[in-house]
Protein backbone atom coordinates (compact mmCIF):
# COMPACT_ATOMS: atom_id res chain seq x y z
CA UNK A 1 0.00 0.00 0.00
CA UNK A 2 1.49 3.28 -1.08
CA UNK A 3 1.21 6.37 1.06
CA UNK A 4 -1.39 9.03 0.53
CA UNK A 5 0.21 12.39 -0.26
CA UNK A 6 -2.86 14.54 -0.57
CA UNK A 7 -6.32 13.99 0.76
CA UNK A 8 -9.38 16.20 0.38
CA UNK A 9 -12.17 15.54 2.89
CA UNK A 10 -15.61 16.98 2.28
CA UNK A 11 -14.27 20.11 0.63
CA UNK A 12 -17.01 22.62 -0.21
CA UNK A 13 -16.86 26.04 -1.75
CA UNK A 14 -19.56 28.43 -2.94
CA UNK A 15 -19.31 31.61 -4.93
CA UNK A 16 -22.41 33.51 -3.92
CA UNK A 17 -25.30 31.21 -4.80
CA UNK A 18 -23.22 28.96 -6.98
CA UNK A 19 -22.07 25.80 -5.24
CA UNK A 20 -18.80 25.16 -7.04
CA UNK A 21 -17.69 22.27 -4.82
CA UNK A 22 -19.93 20.08 -2.69
CA UNK A 23 -18.37 17.66 -0.22
CA UNK A 24 -15.56 16.61 -2.47
CA UNK A 25 -13.45 13.81 -1.04
CA UNK A 26 -10.57 12.27 -2.89
CA UNK A 27 -6.97 11.25 -2.34
CA UNK A 28 -3.72 11.12 -4.25
CA UNK A 29 -1.08 8.45 -3.74
CA UNK A 30 2.54 9.31 -3.45
CA UNK A 31 4.50 8.89 -6.67
CA UNK A 32 1.52 8.33 -8.92
CA UNK A 33 -0.14 10.25 -11.69
CA UNK A 34 -3.71 10.86 -10.62
CA UNK A 35 -6.13 12.18 -13.20
CA UNK A 36 -9.10 14.39 -12.48
CA UNK A 37 -11.74 14.38 -15.18
CA UNK A 38 -15.15 15.89 -15.64
CA UNK A 39 -17.15 18.17 -17.89
CA UNK A 40 -16.67 21.91 -18.10
CA UNK A 41 -17.92 23.48 -14.91
CA UNK A 42 -17.70 20.23 -12.95
CA UNK A 43 -15.42 21.93 -10.43
CA UNK A 44 -12.04 20.48 -11.39
CA UNK A 45 -10.26 23.80 -11.66
CA UNK A 46 -11.94 25.12 -8.53
CA UNK A 47 -10.74 22.12 -6.54
CA UNK A 48 -7.23 22.60 -7.88
CA UNK A 49 -7.36 26.25 -6.95
CA UNK A 50 -8.24 25.26 -3.40
CA UNK A 51 -5.31 22.88 -3.19
CA UNK A 52 -2.88 25.41 -4.67
CA UNK A 53 -3.91 28.18 -2.30
CA UNK A 54 -5.77 30.50 -4.66
CA UNK A 55 -9.18 29.78 -3.11
CA UNK A 56 -9.91 28.79 0.46
CA UNK A 57 -12.62 26.17 0.90
CA UNK A 58 -15.66 27.14 2.97
CA UNK A 59 -15.72 23.73 4.59
CA UNK A 60 -13.71 20.55 4.68
CA UNK A 61 -10.12 19.59 5.11
CA UNK A 62 -7.16 19.37 2.79
CA UNK A 63 -4.46 17.13 4.21
CA UNK A 64 -1.07 17.28 2.54
CA UNK A 65 1.66 14.89 3.58
CA UNK A 66 -0.16 14.03 6.79
CA UNK A 67 -0.73 17.60 7.87
CA UNK A 68 -3.85 19.68 7.59
CA UNK A 69 -3.26 22.72 5.40
CA UNK A 70 -4.80 26.16 5.42
CA UNK A 71 -3.13 28.08 2.62
CA UNK A 72 -3.86 31.78 2.43
CA UNK A 73 -1.90 32.34 -0.77
CA UNK A 74 -0.33 30.42 -3.65
CA UNK A 75 3.01 31.32 -2.14
CA UNK A 76 2.27 29.26 1.00
CA UNK A 77 1.25 26.28 -1.11
CA UNK A 78 4.46 26.58 -3.13
CA UNK A 79 6.48 26.68 0.05
CA UNK A 80 4.77 23.51 1.24
CA UNK A 81 5.80 21.80 -1.99
CA UNK A 82 2.67 22.09 -4.13
CA UNK A 83 3.39 23.51 -7.57
CA UNK A 84 0.72 24.25 -10.12
CA UNK A 85 0.98 24.54 -13.88
CA UNK A 86 -1.99 26.73 -14.58
CA UNK A 87 -4.02 26.50 -17.73
CA UNK A 88 -2.72 29.91 -18.77
CA UNK A 89 0.77 28.76 -17.66
CA UNK A 90 1.33 31.85 -15.50
CA UNK A 91 4.38 32.87 -17.50
CA UNK A 92 5.39 36.48 -18.05
CA UNK A 93 5.94 36.86 -21.78
CA UNK A 94 8.25 39.85 -21.57
CA UNK A 95 10.59 38.17 -19.14
CA UNK A 96 13.21 35.66 -20.17
CA UNK A 97 13.00 31.91 -19.63
CA UNK A 98 15.35 32.01 -16.65
CA UNK A 99 13.49 34.93 -15.08
CA UNK A 100 10.26 33.00 -15.38
CA UNK A 101 11.78 29.85 -13.94
CA UNK A 102 12.92 31.80 -10.90
CA UNK A 103 9.96 34.14 -10.60
CA UNK A 104 9.49 34.95 -6.91
CA UNK A 105 12.22 32.42 -6.12
CA UNK A 106 15.09 34.57 -7.27
CA UNK A 107 18.56 33.74 -6.08
CA UNK A 108 20.21 36.72 -4.47
CA UNK A 109 23.60 37.63 -3.17
CA UNK A 110 23.68 40.33 -0.62
CA UNK A 111 24.69 41.86 2.58
CA UNK A 112 22.06 42.76 5.13
CA UNK A 113 18.91 44.24 3.68
CA UNK A 114 20.52 44.95 0.32
CA UNK A 115 20.40 41.94 -1.95
CA UNK A 116 21.21 41.77 -5.61
CA UNK A 117 20.04 39.19 -8.07
CA UNK A 118 22.55 36.46 -8.78
CA UNK A 119 21.79 36.47 -12.49
CA UNK A 120 24.67 34.22 -13.48
CA UNK A 121 23.77 31.51 -10.98
CA UNK A 122 20.12 31.63 -12.02
CA UNK A 123 21.01 31.39 -15.70
CA UNK A 124 23.33 28.46 -15.10
CA UNK A 125 20.76 26.65 -12.98
CA UNK A 126 18.03 27.43 -15.52
CA UNK A 127 20.17 25.92 -18.28
CA UNK A 128 20.43 22.72 -16.24
CA UNK A 129 16.70 22.63 -15.60
CA UNK A 130 15.82 23.25 -19.23
CA UNK A 131 18.37 20.84 -20.66
CA UNK A 132 16.45 17.91 -19.19
CA UNK A 133 13.44 18.76 -21.33
CA UNK A 134 12.35 16.45 -24.10
CA UNK A 135 10.91 19.40 -26.00
CA UNK A 136 13.41 21.21 -28.22
CA UNK A 137 15.30 23.24 -25.70
CA UNK A 138 14.67 26.97 -25.55
CA UNK A 139 17.59 29.32 -24.88
CA UNK A 140 17.26 30.48 -21.30
CA UNK A 141 18.00 34.07 -22.24
CA UNK A 142 15.22 34.37 -24.80
CA UNK A 143 11.96 36.01 -23.88
CA UNK A 144 9.02 33.68 -23.37
CA UNK A 145 7.15 35.72 -25.99
CA UNK A 146 9.32 34.09 -28.62
CA UNK A 147 8.71 30.49 -27.58
CA UNK A 148 6.29 28.05 -29.19
CA UNK A 149 3.30 26.70 -27.30
CA UNK A 150 5.06 23.45 -26.47
CA UNK A 151 8.17 25.22 -25.29
CA UNK A 152 6.12 27.45 -23.02
CA UNK A 153 4.35 24.45 -21.58
CA UNK A 154 7.72 22.83 -21.03
CA UNK A 155 9.05 25.90 -19.24
CA UNK A 156 6.00 26.02 -16.98
CA UNK A 157 6.29 22.30 -16.18
CA UNK A 158 9.99 22.69 -15.64
CA UNK A 159 9.35 25.46 -13.14
CA UNK A 160 6.81 23.32 -11.32
CA UNK A 161 9.08 20.30 -11.25
CA UNK A 162 12.09 22.17 -9.97
CA UNK A 163 12.53 23.43 -6.45
CA UNK A 164 11.96 20.03 -4.84
CA UNK A 165 8.21 20.14 -5.22
CA UNK A 166 6.28 17.16 -3.90
CA UNK A 167 3.07 17.56 -5.84
CA UNK A 168 2.77 18.98 -9.35
CA UNK A 169 -0.73 19.95 -10.43
CA UNK A 170 -1.33 20.36 -14.15
CA UNK A 171 -4.46 21.99 -15.46
CA UNK A 172 -5.05 20.72 -19.00
CA UNK A 173 -1.41 20.83 -20.00
CA UNK A 174 -1.96 19.75 -23.60
CA UNK A 175 -5.25 21.50 -24.39
CA UNK A 176 -3.63 24.10 -26.63
CA UNK A 177 -0.94 21.94 -28.23
CA UNK A 178 -0.48 20.16 -31.54
CA UNK A 179 -0.07 16.40 -31.85
CA UNK A 180 3.71 16.34 -31.71
CA UNK A 181 3.97 18.81 -28.86
CA UNK A 182 1.31 16.90 -26.93
CA UNK A 183 3.36 13.72 -27.22
CA UNK A 184 6.42 15.49 -25.88
CA UNK A 185 4.60 17.03 -22.96
CA UNK A 186 3.14 13.61 -22.14
CA UNK A 187 6.67 12.21 -22.07
CA UNK A 188 7.58 15.01 -19.71
CA UNK A 189 4.70 14.16 -17.38
CA UNK A 190 5.74 10.51 -17.25
CA UNK A 191 9.28 11.60 -16.55
CA UNK A 192 8.07 13.70 -13.60
CA UNK A 193 6.53 10.59 -12.09
CA UNK A 194 9.65 8.55 -12.70
CA UNK A 195 11.64 11.18 -10.88
CA UNK A 196 9.41 10.74 -7.86
CA UNK A 197 6.96 13.61 -8.19
CA UNK A 198 3.32 13.06 -7.50
CA UNK A 199 1.22 14.48 -10.32
CA UNK A 200 -2.39 15.62 -10.38
CA UNK A 201 -3.45 15.84 -14.00
CA UNK A 202 -6.60 17.56 -15.13
CA UNK A 203 -7.56 16.55 -18.61
CA UNK A 204 -10.42 16.39 -21.04
CA UNK A 205 -8.62 13.87 -23.14
CA UNK A 206 -9.73 10.39 -22.04
CA UNK A 207 -7.17 8.61 -24.18
CA UNK A 208 -4.47 10.63 -22.47
CA UNK A 209 -5.89 9.88 -19.04
CA UNK A 210 -5.99 6.14 -19.76
CA UNK A 211 -2.46 6.27 -21.11
CA UNK A 212 -0.80 8.33 -18.37
CA UNK A 213 -2.62 7.97 -15.12
CA UNK A 214 -2.56 5.39 -12.34
CA UNK A 215 -5.81 6.51 -10.81
CA UNK A 216 -8.80 8.50 -12.03
CA UNK A 217 -11.23 10.64 -10.09
CA UNK A 218 -14.38 11.83 -11.80
CA UNK A 219 -16.21 15.04 -10.96
CA UNK A 220 -19.68 16.08 -11.97
CA UNK A 221 -21.60 19.21 -10.98
CA UNK A 222 -19.27 20.08 -8.11
CA UNK A 223 -19.18 16.57 -6.65
CA UNK A 224 -16.67 13.82 -6.83
CA UNK A 225 -18.75 10.99 -8.25
CA UNK A 226 -16.23 8.21 -8.24
CA UNK A 227 -12.69 7.00 -8.47
CA UNK A 228 -11.12 4.05 -10.24
CA UNK A 229 -7.72 2.49 -10.65
CA UNK A 230 -6.92 3.15 -14.28
CA UNK A 231 -5.87 -0.44 -14.82
CA UNK A 232 -9.25 -1.66 -13.61
CA UNK A 233 -11.45 0.61 -15.66
CA UNK A 234 -12.11 1.50 -19.26
CA UNK A 235 -12.60 4.68 -21.22
CA UNK A 236 -16.27 3.84 -21.60
CA UNK A 237 -16.78 3.53 -17.86
CA UNK A 238 -15.08 6.86 -17.20
CA UNK A 239 -17.21 8.55 -19.86
CA UNK A 240 -20.38 7.16 -18.34
CA UNK A 241 -19.31 8.44 -14.93
CA UNK A 242 -18.61 11.88 -16.38
CA UNK A 243 -21.95 12.08 -18.12
CA UNK A 244 -23.84 10.61 -15.19
CA UNK A 245 -25.08 7.51 -17.03
CA UNK A 246 -23.61 5.41 -14.22
CA UNK A 247 -23.23 6.42 -10.62
CA UNK A 248 -20.40 5.12 -8.45
Amino acid sequence: MTNTLLECRNVSLSFGNVRALADVSLSLRQGEITALVGDNGAGKSTLVRCVSGIHRPDNGHIIFDGEETDFHSPDEARKAGIETVHQNLALVEDLTVWQNLFLNRELVRGFGPIAFLDRRAMQARAREMVSTLAVNVPAVKSRVRRLSGGQRQAVAICRAAGFSSRLVIMDEPTAALGVQETARVEELILRLRDEGHTVLLISHNFAQVMKLSDHVWVMRAGRCVGGRRTSETSGEEIVSLVTGAVSQ
Binding site: T84, N88, N104
Partner: peptide
Protein backbone atom coordinates in the same frame (compact mmCIF):
# COMPACT_ATOMS: atom_id res chain seq x y z
CA UNK B 1 7.72 44.97 -10.93
CA UNK B 2 8.22 43.88 -14.54
CA UNK B 3 6.20 40.72 -13.90
CA UNK B 4 3.38 42.79 -12.42
CA UNK B 5 3.35 45.00 -15.48
CA UNK B 6 3.76 42.22 -17.99
CA UNK B 7 1.26 39.72 -16.62
CA UNK B 8 -0.33 40.62 -13.31
CA UNK B 9 -2.30 37.37 -13.14
CA UNK B 10 0.81 35.25 -13.62
CA UNK B 11 2.68 37.30 -11.05
CA UNK B 12 -0.11 36.70 -8.54
CA UNK B 13 -0.14 32.98 -9.28
CA UNK B 14 3.58 32.90 -8.49
CA UNK B 15 2.87 34.51 -5.14
CA UNK B 16 3.95 38.06 -5.94
Amino acid sequence: LLATGGAAESATAMGI
